[in-house]
Design a protein around this nucleic acid. Structure first.
Lengths: 210, 210
DNA sequence: TGTACATCAGTGAACGCGCGTTCACTGATGTAC
DNA sequence: TGTACATCAGTGAACGCGCGTTCACTGATGTAC
């Protein structure tokens, strides 16, 4: 078994189990059993459980980060003086996310669950890790939003941005669960795309309130 | 030490520690040390750690549940035919929450953090517990929202309701952390009331989008 | 009023268990001479 | 081409630790006769 294979199998298993159960609730024994690798392999390849958690995130964030940067770069090159609307900005983010999780429909929900968990659980190392990884992108997106909502005070814009983030993170991370309720209560199935289709107008209207 | 005292001390300590660290990350030894009671007292009074977690929730949910029911009852009695606007409904909920956590400014954040954790962590027993406890209230609030937004399709209304829930839960649960960033980035302090003052218009605009 | 018993909050110490981590080791592959 | 050595992915078993839980016990209070 090539190194690449074992590492990937561990990351795949950990990603799913973390999202299903949380970080503390998932043991290395469960992960390695699901991955079909030796228990000691996690510490051999990653050094610790903490480092494994960060590696699971890095595998999502890296491509997402690059994709959105590249697509923003491209747009700015093609339309140097255009001011993006909130809807445009949200579409850029949504498209990058869809592309990163493409191929496996479940990964979007997993990604958001992990994000939600990271914010609420094990506070320390993960939040710091995310903040340093995200800082440049965060500033860039914030600057775009500021240009799209010149009427807002900075502090109010900051809060509204986090209201959007919260609505998105909470909903997408509980997507599976919420969709089951929809199916039960309304006899309708919702695809991820449809939910995102509902979400974006909500967010755009919210940030433009009043 | 009267029974009441020990039980209360355990609940007080557990409430804070759970919100700070999560459920799995908080040991009974930490809780009982903070509460100044014997380790075995938790299992003596509550039976298990799981039951303690549910008791922590029940102490919040019970009063909150009753308060909002009573205030809605009162309003319907005084204005039998009035149709509440979204803003009115949100104000009812916000006021009940403020009253329940009154006396200790921190408890609102703790309450929301616990809610967020319950949704994301330890999936099983807590989500079920919340759903059975909340069902009647959930249906009543949903019916009010439906009357306030007759133009929405049921499925879209369902989703928008959960977008609101997500924005509120995520933001209020990370309130402490987000307020620290505001203070650092904008040199401004935000009270909980101000944040809720920002939040409600955002939610109302979101659910009325398009 | 006094004695025997029941109840119950609270305790201290121990239990077994599953956890993350460590370590000595194997075996395959690559490299130097 | 052959030999000696280095590297490194992967392994199996064990380590110590902290966890939730259990249990026999104490001591205060209430109750029955």
């Amino acid at each position: 078994m090539a190194q690449n294979d074992t590492v990937t199998r561990i990351l795949d298993a950990a990603e799913v189990l973390f999202a299903e159960q949380g970080f503390a609730e998932t043991s290395l024994r469960t992960i390695t059993a699901k991955a079909g690798v030796n228990l000691a392999a996690v510490n051999y390849h990653f050094g610790s459980k903490k480092a494994l958690i960060q590696a699971v995130f890095a595998r999502f964030l890296g491509p997402f980060y690059k994709l959105i940067e590249v697509s923003l770069d491209m747009h700015e090159k093609q339309h140097p003086d255009s001011v993006l609307s909130i809807e445009d900005i949200l579409k850029f983010v949504a498209r990058a996310m869809a592309n990163v999780t493409e191929g496996d429909r479940n990964r979007l929900a997993i990604f958001m669950r992990l994000l939600g968990l990271a914010y609420n659980q094990g506070q320390g190392h993960l939040r710091k890790f995310l903040q340093t990884e995200y800082r440049t992108l965060y500033r860039r997106v914030m600057a775009l939003i500021a240009r799209a909502t010149p009427e807002l005070q900075p502090v109010e814009r900051y809060w509204r941005f986090h209201f959007m983030l919260g609505a998105a993170a909470f909903t997408l991370s509980s997507m599976e669960h919420l969709r089951a309720i929809v199916e039960h209560d309304f006899n309708t199935k919702c695809t991820e795309e449809e939910v995102v289709g509902y979400l974006l107008p909500f967010l755009a209207a919210g940030i433009r309130a009043k």
